[in-house]
Design a protein around this nucleic acid. Structure first.
Length: 420
RNA sequence: GGAGGGGUCGCAUAGUGGCCUAGUGCGCACGCUUGGAAAGCGUGUAUACCGCAAGGUAUCGAGGGUUCGAAUCCCUCCCCCUCCGCCA
């Protein structure tokens, strides 16, 4: 959530920021009005409570009828005003929940993904001597992806990874973990369910985000959309020593997404599915180092994609296309030669600086040099999203005979050079 | 899932309706003392909100209730421990 003090002290800045993210800036004015009323009520209530405490204390000594009736009257007033305050309080919180994190000033302005800024293209696209096929055609023929059966068993947007595709998943996970553990990321396998309370604290239950989550009403738990959602809360209520920063985690989890609002989009295959596995990075840093850490996480992503020798490009996401919790976001888009007419870059990774938007919610702090406790900054980044990186591998490494070469770096993990 | 026991300040503990404005010990910080240290002594030691400030309010696992007043009584839930059941 946003800092209430910032909204009060610098409403114009907040309005400008949320507007860049296509959120109605009038919400800010609405918040300020409610906040002001809330503050007045709170003050009145505190004063009455002080009075009540004084009378109660006195009654400990002297139980006069006079005092008692005074106290009873006071109690009624407090109950009434409390009810009013609670209404204001929840209205105020609702609006706060509708305000996204503010983009940094130098994030490219734009309304949607068409205005994202391509920062660089890396790697050489292979020159195929034949027309490259799309991954699904290849994978189904090899029998390593089965979407038809999955649809029968679980519905649309599910898939089986079989045989070497299943093995490839674990090879990719090992590659990512081995690479990142060397960089002192702490490996973690987190829960894939999360309480509404913590999910909200992580800034992931804003009204329009809710629709994309699976919810288990009987247990009042959500299924996570990313390991990020349950790794971040490792810092919940903690105060880290400045010397222990950055704190880096690399997690593996299954991710669940309802993909509501993407009807008709990428309906075939395993590019966009309800369930996939992902390796995820998460960092806690002090504010001064967040931009540096952001670049570092991005460099880790590039290292991983480069290790697979896949061509990719790095994109800075414009304000209108950014994630809810993000102040700056980069995506890595990997080349997929079998997509579209002549190949396409498709998003395989994203990398976000969420500043203190999440840490304020989960109350994750660090101790500064002069002993003060301040909110940490948090960042998250994809390691490998298995389905999508699998697609990139299959399409880039396909051979004319319908097989798939195994990227060199995965051969030892997989124990073979080629899938056929 | 069933039965019982528990959750209090960083840690450990006291606290069965008003003297709790949560005590004590340990730890920690600062000061005194010392050549230096230890011990000793003294002072301090949470978070959030409201307020320019003085100060006030809230928080004893969470939420509700009873009461003029709740750490304390009642209800619901969560978590931990012991035993039973089930299970990878």
């Amino acid at each position: 959530m946003l800092d209430v003090k910032l909204i009060r002290e610098n409403p114009e800045k907040v309005k400008a920021g949320v507007a860049k993210k296509k959120v109605d800036p009038k919400l800010v004015d609405k918040f300020l009005r409610l906040d002001e009323e809330w503050r007045v009520k709170t003050k009145a209530l505190d004063d009455l409570a002080a009075e009540q405490n004084a009378i109660s204390r006195e009654m400990g000594q002297n139980q006069s009828q006079d005092l008692l009736s005074k106290a009873q009257l006071l109690k009624q007033r407090i109950t009434d005003i409390e009810a009013e305050r609670d209404v204001l309080s929840s209205k105020r919180d609702d609006i706060l929940n509708k305000l996204p994190n503010l983009p940094f000033d130098d994030v490219p302005l734009g309304k949607d993904e068409s205005e994202n800024k391509i920062l660089r293209e890396v790697g050489k696209k292979k020159n195929f001597k034949f027309k490259p096929k799309d991954y699904l055609t290849i994978a189904e023929k090899l029998g390593i992806v089965n979407v038809k059966k999955a649809t029968e068993i679980a519905g649309s947007r599910f898939g089986y990874l079989m045989g070497d595709a299943a093995l490839l998943e674990f090879a990719l996970v090992r590659l990512a973990f081995d690479t990142l553990v060397k960089e002192r990321f702490t490996p973690v396998v987190p829960p894939v369910m999360i309480t509404p309370t913590v999910y909200r604290e992580m800034g992931r239950l804003a009204a329009d985000q809710k629709e994309d989550k699976y919810y288990l009403p009987k247990d009042e738990l959500y299924l996570v959309g990313s390991a990020e959602h349950t790794i971040g809360p490792l810092g919940r209520g903690e105060v880290f020593e400045a010397s222990s920063l950055p704190k880096r985690f690399v997690g593996f989890s299954t991710c669940f997404r309802r993909e509501a609002g993407s009807y008709g989009k990428d309906t075939k295959g395993i590019l966009r599915v309800h369930q996939f596995d992902k390796v995820e990075m998460y960092s806690f840093v002090d504010p001064e180092n967040s931009e540096r850490e952001h670049k570092f996480l991005l460099s880790m992503q590039e290292k991983l994609v480069s290790a697979l020798e896949l061509p990719y490009r790095v994109v800075e996401i414009c304000t209108g296309d950014m994630g809810w919790t993000d102040a700056r976001q980069f995506d890595v888009e990997t080349w997929m030669p079998g997509q579209g007419e002549a190949g396409e870059y498709r998003e395989t990774h994203s990398c976000s600086n969420t500043t203190d938007f999440q840490t304020r919610g989960i109350n994750a702090k660090y101790k500064t040099k002069d002993g003060k406790k301040e909110f940490l900054y948090a960042l998250n980044a994809t390691g490998f999203a298995i389905g999508r990186i699998l697609i990139a591998i299959i399409e880039n490494y396909q051979t004319e005979d319908g097989g798939v070469e195994v990227p060199k770096v995965l051969r030892d993990y997989l124990g073979k050079d080629k899938i056929e």
